[in-house]
């Protein structure tokens, strides 16, 4: 039992992302309202982003900005990779955040368009209206 607790304590960050991801996934699958589905999608994306950023974290390391006077072409003290956090997940997630904003904007525009035509964002009502349209 203590081993299990030790395992969770060492990797508690992953548990948090899995919980966030489950919330987002549940909202995307089970919710009836399209806007709520979008909120779920954003929670899901946030979970992924946090997961990536936490991979880049190192103990006793600082943000990935080189300290000191290296910028002026000087070769002062050697730079050790263990002193700086991993910049690669940060870069990847910077672009992922931008994509998430873009997808959110387009999805909301589509929701506005759907609402203009059918006066509802509830999925079952939309399906009903669409089947009526096909019959008539």
């Amino acid at each position: 039992m203590t081993e299990l607790f030790m395992l969770i304590a060492a990797k508690y960050n992953y548990c948090l992302y899995v919980i966030l991801m489950m919330i987002g996934l549940y909202a995307m699958i089970a919710k009836n309202n399209l806007m709520k589905k979008l909120v779920g999608m954003n929670i899901f994306q946030t979970a992924i982003i946090l997961f990536y950023v936490s991979i880049g974290f190192k103990h006793n390391a600082t943000i990935p900005i080189i300290k000191g006077d290296h910028g002026h072409g000087g070769h002062g003290a050697a730079i050790h990779a263990a002193d700086y956090m991993n910049p690669l997940p940060h870069v990847l997630m910077l672009t992922a955040i931008v994509v998430s904003v873009a997808t959110l904007g387009v999805a909301m525009a589509l929701c506005v368009k759907v609402y203009q035509r059918y006066q509802t964002l509830e999925e079952d009502e939309l399906r009903m209206r669409l089947s009526e349209k096909i019959k008539s």
């Binding site: 080189i66 910028g71 002026h72 072409g73 050790h80 990779a81 910049p87 690669l88 870069v91």
Partner: peptide, 22 residues
């Protein structure tokens, strides 16, 4: 990322590694 951290300043002269990689 080890390569980026150790060589980015020599390659690009930009201290902010995130910007350098991006």
């Amino acid at each position: 990322s080890k390569y980026y951290i150790e060589n980015a300043i020599r390659d690009t002269e930009v201290p902010n590694l995130v910007t350098a990689v991006l």
